[in-house]
């Protein structure tokens, strides 16, 4: 276990640029830009503060959810590129034989890479998203205070919303990662074999399989086959449906418990289990390839 954790840590060190330094730099830039915007009068603190006092808790909840969504998009993009690049990194870095001189199997190394995509990388981005939301909250409270003098009085309620949204984001993040594991594993396995060509190949592969089905078994078009429909359905995490959609169209405060119960109830656990099994198989196959081909 100690070796496995060290291998995950190795991934963190190698990719800290994308998963730690760049996000922190982005937060610093956005925060600096916000402060500068208020300082030079580009945004009126009194006006924006007054806006937040119209429906304060709702504005904060939407703001926090928006920040979480933005960071989720960043995470999806970086994880995709990590899987396409990181799984082939030992070969690209000319370090394949060094890691093969260590008493760890290829399977273990690839599972450590997959574990990094599910743990340390998302966790770092999640913490950065919390930091972003906290800074957003700080700016909002200060501007509200300047405008109406009520900012500090609302702090307790705002913090409650912050916690509700943070908890919900965490649950959505965990379930989303578990849901998309087979995709990450597939991209990683392809990268083990073909390196960075995994990027176009992973996008092309579903179309090719669907085309093959259309040619051999028929159908309206390559985009109306069983494979295509299944993949389209399997790719949809359905986060925005249910509670979230209803909350947007109705009154009321955001509830972490209601959001969580709804999301858990709408999760297709069978498909999730199938996805995990698929991930385990493709990573095993990739490790067998890696075991046989040592090209640096």
């Amino acid at each position: 276990m100690k070796a496995f954790v060290a291998l995950v840590r190795r991934e963190q060190i190698e990719h800290r640029g994308a998963f730690l330094i760049a996000p922190l730099a982005l937060v610093a830039i956005l925060f600096g830009a916000t402060v500068l915007a208020f300082t030079v009068g580009r945004v009126d603190a009194r006006f924006s503060g007054a806006m937040m006092n119209l429906a304060p808790l709702r504005v904060f909840a939407i703001g926090f959810l928006g920040v979480g969504f933005a960071w989720a998009l960043y995470l999806i993009a970086t994880l995709f590129f990590y899987c396409a690049d990181g799984f082939a990194a030992d070969r690209r870095n000319n370090a394949m034989l060094f890691w093969k001189s260590m008493p760890v199997s290829d399977l273990r190394i690839l599972y450590a890479k997959l574990a990094a995509t599910l743990t340390i990388f998302p966790a770092t981005i999640y913490v950065v998203s919390l930091l972003s939301s906290a800074l957003l909250m700080g700016v909002a409270v200060v501007t509200s205070n300047i405008s109406t003098g009520n900012g500090l009085a609302m702090l307790g309620n705002i913090f409650d919303i912050y916690v509700q949204v943070a908890g919900s984001t965490l649950l959505a993040l965990v379930l989303g990662l578990l849901w998309y594991v087979p995709y990450m594993a597939l991209v990683g396995a392809l990268a083990t074999v073909v390196g960075r060509w995994a990027i176009p190949l992973s996008l092309l592969l579903p179309s090719l399989v669907s085309l093959l089905e259309w040619v051999t078994l028929g159908g309206l078009s390559p985009f109306h086959t069983h494979v295509w429909n299944y993949l389209a359905d399997r790719s949809d995490f359905k986060l925005a449906d249910g509670y979230l959609e209803n909350w947007f169209h109705a009154e009321g405060t955001f509830s972490m418990v209601d959001f969580g119960n709804d999301l858990l109830a709408r999760t297709d656990w069978t498909q999730m289990a199938i996805g995990w099994l698929f991930a385990a198989v493709v990573i095993y196959l990739a490790s067998e390839y890696r075991r046989r081909y040592n090209d640096n």
Binding site: E14, M96, L97
Partner: peptide, 17 residues
């Protein structure tokens, strides 16, 4: 590999560390 060590290429150390 617990009891065998090897150097196959001096440039094979992980350069990012």
């Amino acid at each position: 590999m617990e009891n065998v060590a090897f150097i196959s290429d001096v440039a094979s150390l992980p350069r990012f560390l």
